[in-house]
Computed example of a mutant assay.
Amino acid sequence: MGPEPGLTFWGPDELQRGIAAMLAHNQGSTAALRNLCLCGKRGFWEWTYTFPGGLPERGCDLLEFQGERIRVKNALRKVQGGA
C-alpha cells in the first residue's frame, strides 16, 4: 500500500489496520472491513463501501501467500444495480 516500496504489515492486527487505511482512500465513502481470515498460505477479507446517495458496494479479496509475501491477490466486487 502506498508509494513504492509500500508498507509492510505483520500479523492479523496490523493487516487489519493496513486494510482499513487502504479503504479510507476512497474519498466520500464509508468503508467497513469484516471477516479477516488468515489460514496458512491463504487468506481473505470482506469489505463494504457506502457512497452518499448510493447503494453499498460489497466485495472480498482472496490472498495466496508465498513465504511472508502476498503472491496472488484476487478482488471480487458486487455492485447492486437499481431497477
Rank of each mutant, 00 (worst) to 15 (best):
G28R: 06
K73W: 02
L76G: 06
A32N: 05
G82Q: 11
L7G: 04
T50M: 03
A21G: 01
H25Y: 03
L33A: 01
G67Y: 10
G40F: 09
R77W: 02
L33C: 03
R17K: 14
D61K: 04
M22F: 12
A24M: 01
F9C: 10
R71L: 15
L63P: 02
P5R: 05
G82V: 10
D13T: 09
K41W: 07
L76S: 08
R58E: 04
T8R: 14
G54K: 13
L76K: 04
C60V: 00
T8E: 14
A31Q: 07
K73M: 12
Q80L: 12
E57Y: 00
A24W: 00
Q16D: 07
N26C: 03
L62G: 01
R17Y: 05
A24E: 08
C37E: 11
L7Y: 08
F51P: 02
K73C: 10
E68T: 15
E4Y: 10
C39L: 14
G81E: 08
W45V: 03
G6P: 02
F51Y: 14
W47C: 01
P5K: 05
T50D: 02
P5E: 06
D61T: 14
M1G: 14
D13G: 02
V79I: 10
Q80E: 14
H25D: 06
P52G: 02
G59I: 05
N74W: 06
S29N: 03
E64G: 04
T30L: 00
E64F: 05
N35W: 01
I70V: 15
Q27K: 11
W47V: 02
E4L: 13
N35R: 12
S29H: 04
V79W: 00
Q80P: 00
G40E: 13
R77K: 10
G40C: 10
F51H: 09
G18M: 07
G53V: 03
E4R: 09
G6A: 08
E46Y: 06
E68F: 09
L62S: 07
D13P: 00
C60F: 03
F44A: 13
E14R: 08
W10D: 15
L55Y: 01
Q27T: 07
L62N: 04
G59A: 06
H25L: 11
L55D: 04
A24R: 05
H25V: 07
N26F: 08
R69C: 12
G59F: 03
L38V: 15
T30H: 02
P52N: 05
E4S: 12
F65K: 08
R34M: 03
G6V: 02
A21L: 07
W47L: 04
V72S: 13
L63S: 01
W47S: 03
R69Y: 13
A20M: 03
V79A: 08
